[in-house]
Design a binder for these strands. Structure first.
Length: 543
RNA sequence: GGGCUUGUAGUAUAACCUGGUUAGAACGAGAGCUUGCGAAGCUUUUGAUCUGGGUUCGAAUCCCAGCGGGCCCGCCA
C-alpha cells in the first residue's frame, strides 16, 4: 500500500476537501505524515487556518491513520492495527503498462570503459530495474559508436604504426599516438576522413582491421559489464543505421528544413525555433553524431514502438539532443514527443576533465581494482576462504561504486576522487550490505518465527520507515531519478542501526515481543532487498 | 555575446520541482561506548543556505538583478 496515496484518499473522503498529492509528506523530525493544507487553503475558504485544521480534525477518519492537530498543522501517525496488517503483506508497487527504451553506457569502439561511461551505465541500469518493478516493458539498449573520426583515427594509427595484439592497452595507446601524430601533421587529416568513408560503406579495405578492433573492444566492454552485473537487451552499431540517418537528411533537404552551405555541408535551420543550427552531414557526405542519432531514433521506433525512449548521457550533450528531438518533430515524426534525454553532470578527476584523446583517463578497471584492494585490506584478518574473499571484495567494490554514483542527483557534477570512494565509512553501499548481513545473521540463528506477537513503539517506528518505501519508489519512478531511494535507504539503515544497538532480538525473554522483533527485522530485510534490487547491488551472506 | 545548468558547515551532500512545524544525514575534528544477536556500528560536541531586492502570514525553496563554477553554441561525440 502506498501510504501517501492512501492518506490523500482517506483525507478527501472523510473531510470532502480536495487536495493535491503534494499536500502530504512524511515528516522525519516528527516521525509522522503531515500536511500544511490548512495553511494554504484557509485564505481561499475565508477561514482561519487553525479553524480549518480543527474542522478537518473533527471530520477525518481512517482505518490506517490517526490524526493529531498541531495548531494549523495536521500530523498523522500510523495506527497500531496497521502495523499488524503491514507485517502480513508483501510490498505492492503501482503498475504501469508502458513500453520504454533506455539507452545507456554507449562507449566508443576502440576505447576503454572509463568512469564517465560508468555513470551512464549505472544510472541507466538502475532506471531499468526501477521501471521493470513498476510494470514497464523495458528494452535496455547500448549504442556502440564505430563510425566516427575516433575509430578512423585509431585504424589509421594501427595501420601506420602496427598492431601489437599482445599489448592489453594497445588500442588506447595507439589512439593517443595517432591523435598526437595528426595534430602535428594536419596533412594526415584527409586520410582519416577517407577511412571514415570506408567504414560507413562496410569497412572496405579496413574491414578486417575493424572487425578485430571491434571484437577486442566488445570483449573488454563485456568484462566490465559482467563485473557490474549489467546487461543489455540490444546492442546497436551505428553502421546499422547511418543509412537511415542519411535518408532523413535527404527528406529534410527536400522539404526545406535543411540547407546546404557554401562549404557543402548540410545543416538544419533551427534559429527561428530558438535553437542553434545543427550540422547534420559533412561536405564529403559522411555522417556525424547528429546524423546517426536521427537514424537511431527512427530505427528504434520501428523496432520497439516505444511510449518513451530515454537516452542517458553526460549533460554536455543537452543541447545536441534538444536539437535532434526538435528536428525529428519538424520532420513530422510523432515519436519525437516520446524522446527524452537525461543528462548527468560530468565526472571529473581531481586533476580536471578527462580526455581519452590525450590519454587522461580513469578507467573502470582502475577504479574497480583500487576498490577491491581496499576491501581486501579490510577483511584481511577474517577467516574466510580465498574464494570467499574474492567474492566479497568484488561485491563490496561494486556496491561502493554504484552507491557513490547513484546517491547524488544526476545534474550534479562529480569530482571523482578514488580515495574518497574507497572509504567505506558512512553513507555508502557497503553500509546497506552490512546491515543486511547483520539482519540475516540474526534470522539464521532464530528458530521458526511464530504467529503470536506484540510490537513496542521501537518496532513501530522502524516499521513506519519500512512502510514509506512504496511512496519513495513511486516518486522515483514518476520523476525518473534514483537518489531519493538512496537517501531513503540510508535513513532506514540509520534507524535500524540505532534500534539494533538498543534492542536485543534473540535474547529477548518475552516470547511475543521476540517474535514481534523478528518479524520487524524481516520487514527491514525485505525493504533493503528491494532497494538493492533497484540499485542492482549484490546481497551478501557475509562480509 | 547568447543558451542551459549549478552555488547549503573545512570537504562532499539532502531538502528546491510541489514554499510550512527545530535545514537532515555523512566525511573531517574532539570526547565516550564491545563478559550484548557482526563495532563497516552506537552515543555525544562542533559547524552551513553566494549577495541584494521582490512576492508571501511564512522563502534554502518562487520571481528579478548581481557575483562565482561547469557545459554548449558550424562539419568531435
Amino acid at each position: 500500500m502506498n501510504l501517501l496515496l492512501k492518506l490523500k484518499e482517506d483525507f478527501e473522503k472523510s473531510t470532502s476537501y480536495v487536495t493535491t498529492k503534494h499536500d502530504f509528506y512524511f515528516n522525519h523530525d516528527l516521525n509522522c505524515f503531515s500536511t500544511s493544507y490548512c495553511l494554504k487553503k484557509a485564505g481561499t475558504l475565508s477561514m482561519k487556518a487553525e479553524e480549518l485544521a480543527s474542522d478537518c480534525a473533527s471530520k477525518f477518519s481512517s482505518n490506517v491513520f490517526e490524526l493529531k492537530q498541531e495548531k494549523a498543522f495536521l500530523n498523522f501517525s500510523l495506527k497500531h492495527e496497521y502495523f499488524i496488517e503491514f507485517l502480513k503483506q508483501q510490498f505492492s508497487l503501482s503498475q504501469f503498462a508502458r513500453r520504454v527504451v533506455v539507452e545507456y553506457s554507449s562507449p566508443n569502439v576502440g576505447k576503454p570503459l572509463h568512469i564517465g561511461h560508468i555513470r551512464s551505465t549505472i544510472i541507466g541500469d538502475s532506471l531499468k530495474h526501477l521501471f521493470r518493478l513498476h510494470g514497464n516493458n523495458v528494452v535496455s539498449s547500448n549504442y556502440l559508436c564505430e563510425a566516427g573520426t575516433q575509430v578512423a583515427t585509431l585504424l589509421w594509427s594501427l595501420q601506420k604504426f602496427g598492431f601489437n595484439e599482445s599489448n592489453p592497452n594497445e588500442l588506447i595507446e595507439k589512439y593517443v599516438l595517432g591523435n598526437k601524430e595528426i595534430e602535428e601533421n594536419p596533412d594526415y587529416k584527409p586520410q582519416v576522413l577517407e577511412i571514415v568513408k570506408e567504414i560507413e560503406q562496410g569497412g572496405g579495405s579496413y574491414k578486417e582491421l575493424l572487425d578485430k578492433v571491434r571484437a577486442r573492444s566488445i570483449e573488454s566492454f563485456n568484462e566490465g559489464y559482467k563485473k557490474l552485473n549489467v546487461s543489455f537487451d540490444e546492442t546497436l552499431f551505428d553502421t546499422d543505421f547511418i543509412q537511415k540517418g542519411k535518408e532523413l537528411v535527404s527528406e529534410g533537404l527536400v522539404n526545406g528544413l535543411f540547407s546546404k552551405d557554401e562549404g557543402g555541408e548540410v545543416f538544419a535551420n533551427l534559429e527561428d525555433k530558438g535553437l542553434p543550427n545543427l550540422i547534420v552531414l559533412r561536405n564529403n557526405g559522411t555522417s556525424l553524431y547528429s546524423t546517426r542519432d536521427l537514424g537511431l531514433a527512427e530505427l528504434r521506433f520501428e523496432k520497439h514502438s516505444y511510449d518513451s525512449c530515454i537516452i542517458v548521457t553526460a549533460s554536455e550533450q543537452n543541447m545536441h539532443f534538444k536539437q535532434v528531438f526538435k528536428i525529428l518533430e519538424l520532420l513530422g515524426k510523432d515519436y519525437s514527443k516520446n524522446l527524452q534525454h537525461i543528462g548527468y553532470g560530468l565526472i571529473k578527476l581531481p586533476e580536471g576533465k578527462m580526455s581519452s584523446r590525450k590519454g587522461i583517463i580513469l578507467t573502470f578497471q582502475d577504479v574497480f581494482d583500487e576498490l577491491r584492494k581496499e576491501v581486501l585490506k579490510k577483511i584481511e584478518a577474517k577467516t574466510y576462504s580465498f574464494q570467499e574473499k574474492e567474492d566479497i571484495s568484488k561485491a563490496v567494490a561494486i556496491s561502493a561504486l554504484k552507491f557513490a554514483i547513484l546517491k547524488s542527483s544526476f545534474d550534479k557534477e562529480i569530482i571523482f576522487d578514488v580515495n574518497k570512494v574507497t572509504s567505506f565509512e558512512g553513507d555508502t553501499g557497503p553500509k546497506l550490505q552490512y546491515n543486511l548481513v547483520r539482519i540475516n545473521s540474526i534470522l539464521d540463528k532464530a528458530s521458526e518465527v511464530k504467529d503470536d506477537f506484540v510490537l513496542s513503539s521501537a518496532e513501530e517506528e522502524l516499521l513506519t520507515h519500512c512502510s514509506l518505501l512504496e511512496s519513495i519508489l513511486l516518486d522515483c519512478y514518476e520523476n525518473e531519478r534514483i537518489h531519493p531511494l538512496c537517501d531513503y535507504s540510508l535513513k532506514l539503515v540509520d534507524v535500524f542501526s540505532k534500534y539494533y544497538a538498543s534492542n536485543q532480538v534473540l535474547n529477548e525473554p518475552d516470547v511475543k515481543l521476540r517474535t514481534g522483533r523478528l518479524k520487524t527485522i524481516q520487514k527491514v530485510k525485505g525493504s533493503l532487498e528491494l532497494v538493492l534490487k533497484v540499485l542492482n547491488i549484490p546481497v551478501l551472506g557475509k562480509m
